[in-house]
Amino acid sequence: MADYLLFATERYALPILQPLADALQAAGHGVHAWLVGNAAGSRLPAPVRMISDAQQAVALRPRAVFSAANWVPTFVSGAKVQLFHGFNVEKRDAARGHFRVRGLFDLYCTQGPATTTPFQAMAADMGHFKVVETGWPKLDPLFGTEDPLVARLREQADGRPIVMFASTFTERLSAAPHLYEAIAAQIATGERYWLLTLHPKCAPELFQRYRALAGTNAVFLETEDLISAERAADVLVADTTSVVSEFVVQRKPVVTFRNRAPKPHMLDFAEPSALPTMLEHAFAPSAALQSELAAYADAIHPYRDGRSSGRVIDATERLLTGELGPLRSKPIGAWLRALQIRRDLRYWGRSSAPPGSPA
């Protein structure tokens, strides 16, 4: 069996990589993880083996490198596979956003038709990468076997409806500073049980304020527990975070605060005082809203079998065996970016990547 490398630069990538690690291990492969940047110091549990530097990554000579970041260490051997770090929630313009291709990856494993269609068009034009729609590994646990944390959260709710709150770190889009008082008031009533989360990059003072709301009627959860929270909750309150799309895949209602690009499946509002009314609508969704939720879920992630990680592995093997066809040479810009990656990772040694790679 082969060795594979998982690569991440942020803590929020760990729930994306863990289901893939589980699937690789179940198939008998060796799984290694290299976490850098804001993910440095984090770990994936054994039997995943942690790599601490570029020298170890090069020496491993993995069959493939799976990245949940916008980039990948090109000087390491193996197919470079993009898993995506979130759904496209239109936080920024298209030129800088979800569909930017830098020439670093050989394979894009897309989440659903909404992502697959534009990437296939670019692949046909550029020719230096392939696209296979697999679904997103992060969401495998959303439809997997029973989760002990989900059971515990529901037990803590004691029969009450469960609301989850999540917020992006992008200051101009974040609901966290604006909704704190409204959420605190809702928690104080005890009518519903609240699951509170914040993006790891949110300001420390926001973490302090929201952690202080934990008690009989609320609990604060870390980013590693995000999927369990999504699974346990009945309704989500959020903003322009990609958690909105993750939650909608379950066909559950979402209440969004000043979403940058509100859609028909969202219950969007602009004033914090409207939160109680929006929650009432969410807990009694109309037939029209339920239809919009289902349509959007099918567009972004139609897979509800919990097997996306397996499809990623299969797609990677098809790439490596040539079943997906040949790749053109990487663009000149990829070679320049590869030099920047070496600088960022402080590695100027020999490459284990195959000839022709931007290593």
Score class of each variant (00 low, 15 high):
L6K: 01
F7D: 06
F7K: 06
F7M: 10
Y12K: 13
P15W: 07
P15G: 09
L17R: 02
A21P: 08
A26Q: 12
H29E: 13
A33M: 06
S42P: 00
R43V: 05
L44T: 00
V48T: 10
R49C: 08
S52N: 08
V65P: 07
V72F: 02
A79G: 14
G86F: 08
F87T: 02
E90A: 15
R96M: 11
V101I: 12
R102W: 04
G103Y: 08
Y108L: 06
C109F: 07
P113F: 01
F119C: 00
A121S: 05
A124F: 00
G127Q: 13
H128T: 07
V132C: 14
D140L: 09
L149F: 01
V150L: 03
A151Y: 13
E155I: 10
Q156K: 15
A157V: 01
M164E: 10
F169G: 01
F169M: 04
T170Q: 14
E171I: 04
L173S: 00
A176V: 04
I183S: 11
Y193N: 02
Y193F: 15
L206W: 09
A212R: 12
L213V: 06
A214R: 06
E222Q: 14
A232V: 13
V237H: 03
S245Y: 13
S245I: 02
S245W: 10
P253Y: 06
V254C: 14
T256G: 05
A261Y: 11
D268K: 04
F269G: 08
E271F: 09
A282G: 08
F283T: 04
A288M: 11
L289F: 03
A295S: 14
S308P: 11
R318W: 00
L320P: 02
T321V: 06
I332L: 15
G333E: 07
Q340G: 11
I341Q: 08
R342I: 00
R343W: 09
D344C: 03
G349C: 02
P358W: 03
A359Q: 09
